[in-house]
């Protein structure tokens, strides 16, 4: 969808989060100088169009004990990968699930699923459940644990170019 300047202003005003008050949209609408009804309508539209996925809170995995994460990667038959990808994404412990190109010969994997758990053992056990789901459609797989965060910046909408 194309975002008009008002949509972009709404996104810029809310991407760091909503004010934690009883009526957060009243405050945002005042800041933007638009009616609250228009703000809510536009947010509803952004949601319908998939620009907003949901409105809520993001828990801190690490503080809630989910300290291990493994990027599981799979070489899955191209004719089956989309059906299976949907099933794997729906597992409650998978945070991201994508089909990506292979980089042969070094990298034969075309399905990436990020798996979270309280320990590496737990991540391995969950990975076994993904393997079961994939069955014979999977030819090879691997798991890459992160050992260090090297950089983490919030991805923000940048101001429009003049």
């Amino acid at each position: 969808m194309t975002l008009d300047p008002k949509d972009r202003a709404i996104i810029e005003a809310t991407q760091a989060g909503l004010p934690l008050v009883l009526q957060p949209y009243t405050v945002v609408a005042e800041t933007l100088g638009i009616a609250e009804s228009e703000l809510l309508e536009r947010l509803e539209n952004l949601k319908k169009n998939g620009v907003i996925r949901r409105i809520g809170a993001a828990p801190n995995h690490y503080r809630l004990g989910m300290t291990a994460n493994g990027m599981t990667v799979w070489d899955v038959d191209d004719s089956l990968v989309d059906d299976l990808g949907d099933k794997i994404g729906a597992l409650p412990f998978v945070t991201h699930c994508y089909r990506r190109p292979r980089a042969l010969p070094m990298w034969p994997y075309n399905l990436f699923a990020m798996v979270h758990g309280a320990s590496r053992d737990e991540v391995h056990a969950k990975r076994d459940r993904v393997a079961e789901l994939l069955g014979d459609a999977c030819r090879a797989s691997d798991i890459l644990f992160s050992t260090r965060i090297l950089k983490k910046t919030g991805m923000r909408l940048r101001g429009q170019k003049g």
């Binding site: 809310t14 991407q15 760091a16 989060g17 909503l18 996925r53 809170a57 801190n60």
Partner: peptide, 16 residues
Amino acid sequence: GLLTRFGPFFDAEALG
């Protein structure tokens, strides 16, 4: 620090 953020979650690609 138990919640990192409260608000809308945007599809980064849909934003351009």
